[in-house]
Write a protein that binds this DNA or RNA. Sequence first.
DNA 1: ATGAAAGCGCTAACAG
DNA 2: CTGTTAGCGCTTTCAT
Lengths: 358, 358
Amino acid sequence: MAEQLPADRPTLEAVAARAGVSRATASRVVNGGDGVRSHLVDKVRTAVRDLGYVPNHAARTLVTRRTGAVAVIIAEPEIRIFSDPFFSRQIRGISKELTAHDMQLVLLLVEDRGDYDRIERYLAGGHVDGALAFSLHTDDPLPAITRRIGMPTVYGGRPGWTGAAAGSAGPSEHGPVAYVDADNRGGAREAVRHLLSLGRRQIAHIAGPLDQTSATDRLDGYRDVLLDADPALIAEGDFTAAGGARAMAELLERCPGLDAVFAANDLMATGALGVLRERGRSVPGDVALVGFDDAELVAESTDPPLTTVRQDIEGMGRLMARLLLRTLDKAHGAGRPGGRGVPASVITPTSLVRRGSA
Amino acid sequence: MAEQLPADRPTLEAVAARAGVSRATASRVVNGGDGVRSHLVDKVRTAVRDLGYVPNHAARTLVTRRTGAVAVIIAEPEIRIFSDPFFSRQIRGISKELTAHDMQLVLLLVEDRGDYDRIERYLAGGHVDGALAFSLHTDDPLPAITRRIGMPTVYGGRPGWTGAAAGSAGPSEHGPVAYVDADNRGGAREAVRHLLSLGRRQIAHIAGPLDQTSATDRLDGYRDVLLDADPALIAEGDFTAAGGARAMAELLERCPGLDAVFAANDLMATGALGVLRERGRSVPGDVALVGFDDAELVAESTDPPLTTVRQDIEGMGRLMARLLLRTLDKAHGAGRPGGRGVPASVITPTSLVRRGSA
DNA sequence: ATGAAAGCGCTAACAG
DNA sequence: CTGTTAGCGCTTTCAT
């Protein structure tokens, strides 16, 4: 009853004593046991087991300067953060990859802009070896922070600065930035070409918020195929179902004759679907509809199910983690993503999934 | 160009030297500055700023034995984990509360059963001061682990063991367990009473997976009001929309005359809604429908919008964190939830939100 | 009110 | 191959 309370955990010293070896040897065994006679290895292993020894993380970090943890920074201010299956799956991918390498995931949720001070302190405090971040907006302070404190970072999605934003730092100031992104532009092209192949001629686009590259890239893909598309056929949404509905209503107002819609994500497509139905347009009869993401539980559960552009979201998460870990291995912290044989970024392929809506 | 590379961060020693004080004094200032002449406080603060000093976390943890981090363990094996808005919001609540106390959130996702070894090692390794966990199933190994290594833990949702499960540990073995849960049973009663007050007489229930207390508690609430409900009026779902649809189809088969449905969550309610409509039943005309959760973007976006039982999910998350933090403060680690003036658990109220579906 | 000194538990040269 | 010896950067008695 009482022996459980403070539970002073055994130290390496205790293990060494019990195994009749020095602390150094005990340490070697605990860290793999290379170059120690198997005779002693067994002795130490036994002692470890008997004593229930677990290495003290702080002590180890203090000397090795590695924390074995990676920060995942999510700055989406809105509900989207998790309710968008996109993040969930990417985080799962990250988690799996990190776990496989015995690294931990520290979640940093950014609520308001003032939080960046806290984030910087945290990152600078040596709590983590590297960082993973998402959906950088044009004027996001994060890249400047990670660069200033020299924190290896990999982004999910192509960062938004292209040097065009007034008053914000261009790429030259940031240096190369590592990221993993889907082939948004190519995927969008495929979606639109598919619509075209169906014989549709008035193809509208519901774009995402245009301060995100995933949205602009998809819009660019749309334009790649429809070089002379009427601007009236393009409406900006916000990646939510409600936004998609609003945009759809707008489009119908402006171009009653449209016969196809390419929505920049599935959530907006579902919103659009609702409006289309309300207004008496059949899908895909009157209007063919294509989404983007292939968010399960979204794309498959609509009626009709959504034809959409699939991206391997979980795989992108894994890739982000892998890229970061590889950077951390190179030169033990002196490496930056993009340097020394670690690719600066990776673009993953997309594929069109045909279902009922187009 | 080159001065950025290793960026050896300044130590307290450097700060002390620059401020012309001892390391001890510098430390005092960094930790609040009580009992140091304001003259010196300023000097040290200036040095901190000039040097860009940030305390080394590992060193501090090594001596204080506090990590300033809390683990959030999520063991939902399914996609649900994040796509269910429930978790998202609860995590947000937790994150906000932790952030307010300068504590970090370490996310531990459990993929398979073997992961528990890893979790135990992690928890035992002194990476975190406490743990928060969700949706414990009847035979979950987690409570045994946290208890064995003496890790203060607060659960989200009432744990599933009631001593009844064959071969699994009963509550006496676990000791009191701290948890935060909504008043599931009371909320369910209110939902059913509302249906009754509408004049409905054949009220069915779509239950959640019965190995979760949130599901059994809601079922119990349903039975509290409908003491002699026909068992045929109860179908088990799995908290997903698809499961709700399946259960609804079953119910309609068995009891074509039903005139109301109380679904144990909103997701299942939406699935039921789809089936009801397919089968030509109007909602709420033919069948009144009530959900549970008040998941925004779910309950409000159906047609008709869902009447549902609201619980303050984000608040529950905050409460979990607060409960844990309070435990950690008491007696500096010797405290357990439930001991010394920290309440063992908290039940939060629910409220019926009337919308169109009932 | 301040400083000197003793570690926290571990790893990593460096000897042997 | 193994042990000895220094610290990693910080907090915290204990003197002063």
